[in-house]
Amino acid sequence: MMHQPMKHNRPPMMKRIADASEPYLYSAPALILIVAVMLVPLVVGISYAFRDIQLLNPFSGGFVGLDHFRALGQDQAFYGALRNTLWWTGASVFLQFTFGLILALLLDKPFYGRGLVQALVFLPWAVPSFLAGLNWAWLFNPVIGPLPHWFYALGLMDEPHNILSDPHLAMWGPIAANVWWGIPFFAITLLAALQAIPRDLYEAASIDGAGPVQRFWSITLPFLAPTIAITVLLRTVWISNFADLIVVMTNGGPADRTQIVASYIFTQAFKRLDFGYASAIALVLLALLLVYSMLIVLLRQTMLNKG
């Protein structure tokens, strides 16, 4: 009565098209942006890897084939960066995860003031990464920071000096900052997974006579396993690419002892303005990450097939 339906047998063509295009209209702006600002530069960047592109040299731009990769093969700094990346990623992920899991388990128990404690211990996650880097660099600085003096007092150091300028210890600086900054990430995700475990499962296990340790191994861990697997694997990729702390705290030094691949790329592009070489390193990094992801997918497949 409000609307007269349209004429009989109108060809539904227009409506079909309109209906089918609706989701594309909604997602188009986001997609266009992603393609223009991420995908296109990715492709362009891959092409740079085979060209001589130096910002300061107006005559650069020519095609150089695999020259960059040959140079890379001889580049000791690059191999050092690869080793450092493994070390940086392994230590950071391991420590973040371990302390994050412990924190999640601690917070899973109800206690007075839990909400406030939660807000406080998760706060480092909100601290901008550059500030986290600076903050820890200052803590390690014997002029204004307490850490060297404490290490000295504990007998860990002969005199209060800055570990960030010690080639053998420098990597621990960014790792410490990264652990501080990244514990909340693991704690939050693991806590959510913990709280999703049905409580009556624990009660049933207790009635069946399982102690706290048995309950942890037979209920908690199996339930957490998928979350642990996915967060650790993804976090590994993310942290191996995370150069902010290193750029801020040590800039790769001393003597390239804290240079990771990601910060090496940034240094090549930002300091030397050698975009071609930077892109070649980036391409190698991308390939390595792809291999890593493939391995994960394969691992998952075999585990699924077994299970």
């Binding site: 530069p41 990715l42 362009v44 740079y48 690419n241 790329i265 975009f275 930077a278 892109s279 990094l285």
Partner: peptide
């Protein structure tokens, strides 16, 4: 995928573009 790949590799091309 865009969440997985190292954004640092876009630094140079984005600057150029």
């Amino acid at each position: 995928i865009t969440q997985m790949f190292p954004l640092v590799m876009l630094v140079a091309p984005i600057f150029k573009m």
